[in-house]
C-alpha cells in the first residue's frame, strides 16, 4: 500500500547539504496504525510530508497504491492527496473565516462532488466526531480539542485510505488528547490506515506498530514495547 525504498531527501543551499532522510525503507500495509517517533530534527515531518505528497524526494522510490510517486505531476499529486489521503495537523489548520460545515466541505469541493453528496458526508463526519450540532460555528468558537475533531471530520469526509496525523495531540491537554486518540483508534478499527507522527511515547504505545527515526533513518521498527523512548524536546 505504501512502500518507501531507499528513500532520500537532501536539502541543499550554496554552502550546506542536509540529509533529512537517507536510506529510508518502510512498508505500511492496509489497516496499519503506525506511529513515527524520534527526536526533534530526526526527519519525522519530512517523512510525513513526502508520504503525504506534500514534498518531493531526491532519491529512492516511493510507491503509493501502485502509483510511482516520482512520475506524478503536481495536478496528479493534488488529486491523489484529495482522494486517498486525509491530513490531521498539529495546529488543526482550520480556515478561520469558514464555519465548520464549510471547513469540512473544502476537500470535497476539490473532488467535484455534488451538493447533496457533500452535505451528506459533512453531516455524517461531523456527527461522527460529536459536533453535528455545531456546523454553523466558527473554529474560534470551539476549544482546541473540538477544533482537532473538526480537522478529523474534514479528513474523514473524504473517506481516505490513509490518514496522516502530524502531532495530532501536540496542542491539546491530556484529557482532550486522550479523546482524540480514542477517536483515531476507532477510525483505524473501521479500516483506515493511519500514520501518526508523535513525540509522545504514551500515544505511540497505543498504536499497532512504531517506527523510530533518527538522523533521517529508521533505527528500529520493533514492537512498541521495546522501542527507545523518544525525546520530548
Amino acid at each position: 500500500m505504501l512502500i518507501m525504498t531507499n528513500l532520500e531527501k537532501t536539502f541543499r543551499t550554496d554552502l550546506v547539504e542536509t540529509h533529512a532522510l537517507r536510506d529510508f525503507n518502510l512498508e505500511v500495509k492496509e489497516g496499519d496504525f503506525v506511529s513515527v517517533t524520534g527526536p526533534s530534527g530526526s526527519g519525522k515531518t519530512t517523512f510525513l510530508n513526502i508520504a503525504g505528497l506534500l514534498e518531493s524526494y531526491t532519491g529512492g522510490t516511493y510507491m503509493l497504491d501502485d502509483y510511482n510517486v516520482a512520475t506524478l505531476n503536481d495536478k496528479q499529486r493534488s488529486r491523489l492527496r484529495n482522494e486517498k489521503i486525509g491530513f490531521i495537523f498539529q495546529s488543526f489548520n482550520l480556515i478561520p473565516d469558514l464555519n465548520l460545515f464549510d471547513n469540512v466541505d473544502v476537500p470535497l469541493r476539490y473532488r467535484g462532488l455534488g451538493s447533496a453528496e457533500r452535505k451528506k458526508r459533512i453531516t455524517e463526519s461531523l456527527e461522527k466526531v460529536g459536533l453535528g450540532n455545531r456546523m454553523k460555528h466558527l473554529p474560534s468558537q470551539l476549544s482546541g480539542g473540538q477544533q482537532q475533531r473538526v480537522a478529523i471530520a474534514r479528513a474523514l469526509a473524504g473517506e481516505p485510505r490513509f490518514l496522516l496525523a502530524d502531532e495530532p495531540t501536540g496542542n491539546l491537554d491530556s484529557q482532550m488528547a486522550k479523546s482524540v486518540m480514542t477517536l483515531l483508534k476507532e477510525i483505524n478499527l473501521q479500516g483506515t490506515t493511519i500514520i501518526m507522527v508523535t513525540h509522545d511515547p504514551e500515544l505511540a504505545m497505543q498504536t499497532s506498530r512504531n517506527v523510530f527515526v533518527k538522523d533521517g533513518k529508521i533505527c528500529d521498527a520493533a514492537d512498541v514495547h521495546t522501542m527507545p523512548l523518544a525525546s520530548n524536546q
Partner: peptide
C-alpha cells in the same frame, strides 16, 4: 492547507 487537502494550483 488547501493544497494539502487536494487543491491544484
Amino acid at each position: 492547507t488547501r493544497r494539502a487537502l487536494g487543491a491544484t494550483q
